[in-house]
Design a protein around this nucleic acid. Structure first.
Lengths: 231, 231
DNA sequence: CGGGTTATTGAGGGGCGTCAACAACCGTGG
DNA sequence: CCACGGTTGTTGACGCCCCTCAATAACCCG
């Protein structure tokens, strides 16, 4: 990872992050305190169980938030995109509950907790946004859980593809985008196996929902894919 | 539901709730603003999607936090016990992400958001505790998700029984406790079917891990049950 | 005591995990 | 440029786990 210089003031990700409603003065403060780091695909950003003391926000790129399950099998809780908080503690004794790993080339901003606290004082909306972020995450993972439990594999994979499509901003139609996620990783998003993912992606291809050759994927029919996912 | 009078000052659940470190003055304030309500088993406390404007904390009893999934099938995210927050909003437009329903006779305390805010100003630790509650919940549901995805049904049911045992404070040994949860509800905790729960509870009985006749359950061997749950 | 709900147990079948063989892809080095 | 080994993706066969359905038993409340 190598440090970078990016300004909070004209940050692309600002509007979808907790800094949404910050006055310029507070932005300048955060800007002066933050560090930016760059990661290549596959590179670990945060390791599950480690201690961090601050806040990580994605500036650019795509990451996976994942945890180690039984027998060392990975499970991907969700993908993270620009503007999202992917790590947060308010003291240095708290352990991270999930690992964060770059999936695409990714730039991450980090700010130490003490600085973050000071900044919050200048901008009370950050506190509210942060709370709201947690509640949203809670809601999302709740929805996710129920899907994982009640859907069959075909539905779960359709759902995972929709999540991928959203994060990668895939447009409907034949414009293949290279996705760094392996079949194994897609299966880690759904709790199934790489073979099953392969088989069902093939099914979706013959059904005309998607086009997929290896890692090049396009969504040909969002509506039908959503119908499979049951919503 | 009928209002009750309970004091925050000598509340049993205080020490395991967000009021843990509150000075007496703040406790008195919360006490003067809160309402307490009593519910019978099966009675709905909060309905998924409804709007509430305040904070719900369990004073006594056991509840289930559940969401409606596909085909109207219920899924139980977790059980809630005294001291736990089971509903929270910071504005009246936010919808509850899960329903809360009494499983055992339950007393719940409610405080309106504006009062809660005022109280927080008197007791800054509440804010921190609240944040910490959210993060813990996030961590727990993350662990839960991975279990639900990676465990087989036998393991999941062992896990659910352990969760039940914890919430009901079951001691090891033959002292049967009447659990109001039906087989259907246990299956809703694990994403399986009531028949499967019946079969596997019978297995556990013949294996000598538990004793169960209908709703009377005792845990005979925690260690072995935990071993089945894989941890 | 009788009707309705809940629990138990068994039989049958399908979804999906496992294993294995083969194809495609990729970076490296000759 | 091709050869080559390693990784990743694809596809099929097999078998087991678990969902579904159904029949019976146990329980609860009036």
């Amino acid at each position: 990872m190598k440090p970078l210089n990016i300004s909070c003031l004209n940050c692309n990700a600002k509007d979808c992050s907790i800094l949404r409603n910050c006055p310029t003065e507070a932005l300048q403060f955060f800007d002066s305190k933050k560090y930016c780091m760059r990661y290549v695909p596959g590179q670990s950003i945060i390791r599950e169980g480690s201690r961090i003391d601050g806040v990580y926000v994605i500036y650019e790129g795509i990451v996976k938030l994942h945890v180690k399950g039984r027998l060392g099998r990975d499970f991907i809780l969700r993908l993270g995109k620009p503007g999202e908080i992917v790590g947060h503690t308010d003291d240095q004794f708290q352990k991270q509950s999930s690992s964060v790993t770059a999936v695409e080339p990714t730039t991450v901003c980090f700010i130490e907790h003490t600085d973050f606290e000071s900044g919050m004082k200048k901008c009370p909306s950050v506190q509210r946004e942060l709370m709201s972020v947690f509640k949203n995450e809670l809601k999302n993972i709740g929805n996710r859980t129920i899907q994982l439990v009640q859907m069959n594999v075909r539905e779960k994979i359709a759902d995972a593809l929709l999540h991928i499509a959203e994060v990668y901003k895939l447009k409907e139609g034949k414009n293949p985008v290279e996705i760094s996620l392996s079949r194994q990783e897609i299966s880690d998003m759904t709790g199934t196996t790489k073979e099953q993912v392969s088989k069902i992606i093939s099914e979706f291809r013959t059904d005309g929902f998607i086009d997929a050759h290896g890692k090049k994927i396009s969504i040909l029919n969002y509506a039908k894919l959503k119908a499979v996912a049951g919503g």
